[in-house]
Amino acid sequence: MTRAPLLLVDGLSVAFPTATPVRDVGFTVGEGETVALVGESGSGKSLVASSLLRLLPAGGRIVGGAVRFEGTDVTRSTEAELTHLRGRRIAMVFQEPATALDPVMTIGRQVAEVIEWHEGASRRAARARAIELLDLVRLPDPSRRVDSYPHELSGGQRQRVMIAMAIACRPKLVVADEPTTALDVTIQAQVLELLDRLRRELSMGVLLISHDLGVVGQWADRVVVLYAGRKLEELPAERLFDGARHPYTRGLLAASPRPSALGADGLLTEIPGQIDGADRLPGCPFSPRCALARPSCDDRMPDLVAVGPEHTVACPVAPRGGIADAVAVGR
């Protein structure tokens, strides 16, 4: 714990002209560690991811905080420094492999170009490396497939190509933005397994963005829970299912389709209300939907308090106890 982490996000805020969808978010990713960012649609998890490479959508700006990667503050980097960073030190895997690959370029060229671009490799050498990489991500018959176009591959194979592109220059950090959401469940497991194997072999840090708690609990080391742009809880992944404290995290767990999540009426539990507009609240963004909310929750955002090893919660009323109680919270 004495070494500086690979990635340190501290007090990050992202603003658009009409909203501030990410407020004061902080977390770390260590070398060879998988950290998951969890939250529902609109929680700002993808914005946090794109902030790391300064690829925010038009109009978005980082208005506060720092993103330190290997000691440099990315928020202050010049465009030239960013070009050096992107793809080479930090790589990204996108959600939709069908659209994230160029439809009119062979997959081999797409992988090779990253290598040519960053390492100045010759066309021939880059092609050979591309074939190696496609083999590394277990694309069948890589020496022939290297000349395929994206539409000739299945979804899982395309995601393997995306991963090959991402690891082409042996980055220290891979940001995987919902890498398996567009895939079948069986393919999901293979792709996550692949990412995990590469993480170990190349000792990369992985920032896994997901809304699937099952995936997160299985593959991540630590979990950061976001809601409406605020960090509500951070805890070790193995404690996620029985040690989560925040009412929102518990609500999410209770709403996951598992036998224990069924209520007395046999229906899946849901969290009442919706996330819309919660990013404008001065206090805890979850309080309008929280069964345990007190009036004081709306006054100011509760501080993150350490409640266990590597476990912090931003909720003064967070209950203790197992997941069984979470069902009651979700009701």
């Binding site: 490479l53 690829l55 960013l82 070009t83 050096h84 960073l85 992107r86 793809g87 080479r88 790589a91 990204m92 996108f94 939709e96 659209t99 994230a100 690959l101 160029d102 439809p103 009119v104 370029m105 170009e113 990253v114 671009w117 960053h118 995306m162 592109m165 991402a166």
Partner: peptide, 23 residues
Amino acid sequence: DFVLAARAAGCGDLHMMLREILP
């Protein structure tokens, strides 16, 4: 997405225009 992906891979403006978008 593939243009964003190319940018995330560190490609410069000219490369993006000529190699990714123009074709």
